[in-house]
């Protein structure tokens, strides 16, 4: 039986104000463990808002998000932070690395915040992660000494640091050149193939086609779900 890693039930995110605005409007979604899901849609469709809700960065106005079967709507902000720290890894469009820290220190940051490993274990894992992403030689470099693709790979290594079950990535290739885009997407694909769940927001239909499932969102609602074979390249235009 397939295990559900991430589930959204009637998810609504509304911004209250003089004029209320609904970003996410009643989305039901289940992402299986080890699945690679791409969320696509036009600008302002609510795909990033959905991603922030799924990664517990934002709280829904209505509905429930379950991470590994655990409901999260009643968690306090501190408990939500703990879930983010241990179960979710984030990759953003811009790398968002701490500029004063080296690549290795940036990767060590979530592990140090979790405090579950010794300093030696953390460093070993950090170096292993950087090495596996082809950054072994850049461990002691600061972000401003790295290229855009290298920075984004450091950000991926940071997201993987605490062995999270879910990786959420918000347009991780949006600011990269073609070669770096290919490299980053391949890494995310590999992560999913190794059993971790990956949910990625992208504008790029070619990249979305490489996901196991593509969810197309318009006006905060799921308009289309396209099942695809794992790793199979399907060039289908997103309507």
């Amino acid at each position: 039986m397939t295990e559900v890693a991430l589930q959204a039930v009637e998810l609504v995110r509304r911004i209250e104000g003089v004029v209320s605005h609904t970003l996410v409007n009643g989305i039901d979604l289940a992402v299986n463990k080890g699945e690679f899901v791409a969320i696509t849609g036009p600008s302002g469709s609510g795909k990033s808002s959905l991603l922030y809700l799924l990664g517990l960065l934002d709280a829904p106005s209505e509905g429930e998000i379950m991470i590994c079967g655990q409901p999260t709507s009643k968690l306090s902000e501190t408990e939500r932070a703990d879930v983010r720290l241990t179960k979710c890894g984030f990759v953003f469009q811009f790398h968002f690395l701490l500029p004063e820290f080296t690549s290795l220190d940036n990767v060590l940051l979530p592990m140090r915040a979790a405090g579950r490993m010794t300093e030696g274990e953390m460093r070993e894992r950090g170096l292993t992660l950087l090495g596996s992403l082809g950054l072994g030689e850049h461990a002691n470099k600061r972000p401003n000494q790295l290229s855009g693709g290298q920075r984004q790979r450091v950000a991926i290594a940071r997201a993987l640091a605490n062995r999270p079950e879910i990786i959420v990535a918000d347009e991780p290739t949006g600011a990269l050149d073609t070669a770096s885009t290919e490299q980053v997407f391949s890494i995310l694909r590999d992560i999913a193939d190794q059993g971790q769940t990956v949910v990625v927001v992208t504008h790029d239909p070619a990249l979305a086609a490489r996901a196991d499932r593509r969810i197309h969102i318009v006006d905060g609602k799921i308009q289309e779900i396209t099942e695809q074979g794992s790793g199979e390249l399907v060039c289908e235009a997103v309507s």
Partner: peptide, 9 residues
């Protein structure tokens, strides 16, 4: 970023 990574407020 630190908060999004899970560091407490």
């Amino acid at each position: 970023i630190m908060k999004s990574l899970g560091m407490r407020e």
